[in-house]
Amino acid sequence: MFKFYMPVNVASHIISFLAALVLLTAFGMLVQKRIYGLIRLFTWQGLFLSLNTAFVGYVANKHHLYISALLTLSLKVILLPYILHILIQRLKIRKEVETIVNVPMTMLIGIALVILSYHLTAPIRELSNLTTRSTLAVALATVMLGLLMMITRKHAVTEIMGFLAMENGLFFAATSATYGMPLVVEFGVAFDLLMAAFIFGIFFFQINTAFDSLSVEQMARLKEDD
């Protein structure tokens, strides 16, 4: 059996590797211009996240984390990407995603956010004695990058991608700060997420038919004084 022979320090090494990959995919989503590329990156992020959760479960010897890893896998690697694919096909989105701020600038802001989150989590790092405490900064950075993505993109589908990336970051934060939330809460969150995806999907159809576009800038037209 593989897992009985793996020393804990190797596992924690792998955890930090996976954390780095999560961060990388977050940056990738920030700068990716094609919408299918975005979904692919989101899928990868989910995969790394679920693997990471499983490894944390192994290191911390918390078995309920295996279940949440499995949950993440099925929801974020299989179900959500599938829904998004369907959505995009139905909406017939082909062109590249427009960004508001140019790509190198977004990268620099992203780097600044990573440094900021490292700075912000420093006190927690001092107090905590969990093996995963160093990945907390990465988790916070992932949340911030998701938010940044929502700010810098115009397209409605990328908004939801940013939202989902943010949720990934929160989940990651929970795993690294306290070895995961209680299972009931996680189920609840997962279910909410799924609902959110559906609602967003319905929303998009409505927006698309109303404005003939999915650019959220069109929403400015809803203002009365226009």
Binding site: A19, A20, L23, V31, P104, M107, V114, Y118, S134, V138
Partner: peptide, 23 residues
């Protein structure tokens, strides 16, 4: 190419950051 080399810079910087954050 600004994006290509920007990506290189990003990767290198993430390397530097993750040295301090993760290692």
């Amino acid at each position: 190419l600004t994006e290509f080399l920007g990506a290189a810079f990003l990767l290198a910087t993430l390397g530097m950051l993750s040295y301090f954050i993760l290692d």
